[in-house]
Design a protein around this nucleic acid. Structure first.
Lengths: 225, 225
DNA sequence: TTCCCCATCCTTCCATACAAGAATGGCATT
DNA sequence: AATGCCATTCTTGTATGGAAGGATGGGGAA
């Protein structure tokens, strides 16, 4: 990793370091188990140790770093049990969400969701898995907004980061296309105002993450606890 | 608040400051809306600004403080919508937990829970609402352990702090005795291995928090957003 | 050969000084 | 009297130096 300029988007240097490091961790540029140090990152970004240290603290609280006092700071390995717990929480919330959306249908909702799927197909065809990832997240967040519980989505956003790392390891054309197909099923159920079908489609969509997790654990055993 | 010695329980000074401040916030010694500053707290505990600053960062991420860059740091007011969201998440998890516990009953479980309730009655009779609060939390955490999902309890622990502040405002003899009665109903259902009754009792127990929240908002409007 | 001790080199942690943005209140101006 | 400007004084943000604990590897002793 080279010089790496910090994007000038946030107020403080510490915030920018947080964003940069989190991005590196989720995209696996920094791999689970990697050891980093304050001075290392500080030198890499051309800032002092202080804002880097504060960034470490924030990321540690988000479960992405593990600070071992007086020893070292390492990129936290992915905890399979933690991922499953996050998924459990996410599923119960998203199922409740899709019930509400399908129970109170609107043309608006169907249109917005259909538009999002079209964008996802474009990203998938272009092989831009990074963009697909962003759009997939937007799809689920939009569902939460349509259900009037966008705040709940923010609550699970932290826990979702662990899962995001797994997803990044597994993103390929085949899986993106399957995800798009599942998204279509969900939207169809919403358009038909069929909550039961919507719930079933959503559970199937999320359940696939379990298979991906097991597959990923065997493919990258070093990244897991 | 006077000199205030930091308990010598944790490794670093910053950790001790975190524990001390969180305790002050949850017990309402520091009230929502109170303005604090790094040098203020640093002087109060006889440490430098640095560990206090790091404590602020941690508590801000936990939603207890609001850091306004270059302006000030304030004890965050309680967000009613946030409390309700936390309750929603907690209810879905605890209902799942109580189902499992009641579905796989054991004498051991009933004994442990009965013992905990006895302790709660002692604390209630003694008027020690602080100790009752601790025991109440232990009761729910024990249920999670008996269901084999203690990890899930940790996930909701952060969000629970907001609710804890509300509870601290409402702790009185009457409400503790009612809580104890509800705990007994839950344990009875577990002893009878009746998941449906257990779920009903748990939902009723948690639903009371909604009434308490509304009551508390009218009693202490300044503490809420 | 094996094991223990210790010098050395890391790391994070803490203290302090300074920088910079924001609020406040007084003063000058209109 | 009302209003706008500006110095003062708060706040948090950043930089840097040193302190303290842990890891590591080499050398000596058994």
């Amino acid at each position: 990793m080279a010089a790496a300029a910090l994007k000038n988007t946030k107020e403080t240097i510490a915030m920018r370091v947080v964003d940069a490091l989190r991005d590196d961790i989720i995209t696996m540029a920094l791999k689970p188990g990697d050891v980093i140090s304050e001075s290392d990152i500080a030198g890499r970004y051309g800032v002092s140790r202080q804002p880097v240290r504060e960034a470490f603290i924030r990321l540690a609280q988000q479960g992405l770093l593990l600070i071992r006092p007086k020893r070292a700071t390492v990129v936290k390995k992915i905890s399979p049990v933690g991922v499953r717990q996050s998924r459990f929480i996410r599923e119960s919330i998203e199922v409740e969400i899709i019930r509400r959306v399908a129970g109170q249908p609107s043309d608006d909702a169907a249109n917005v969701l259909t538009k999002l799927i079209a964008d996802q197909e474009a990203a998938s065809d272009a092989g831009d898995s990074r963009r697909f990832h962003t759009l997939d997240e937007l799809f689920h967040r939009t569902l939460a907004r349509l259900a009037g519980v966008e705040y709940a989505w923010q609550l699970i956003d932290d826990h979702k980061m662990q899962l995001d790392r797994v997803r990044y390891l597994t993103l390929g054309v085949s899986s993106t296309q399957r995800a798009i197909a599942e998204h279509k099923q969900i939207v169809e159920a919403v358009a038909k105002a069929d909550p039961m079908a919507a719930e079933t489609a959503m559970r199937a969509h999320l359940a696939r993450a379990e298979l991906l997790l097991n597959q990923t654990i065997s493919d990258f055993p070093d990244y897991f606890e």
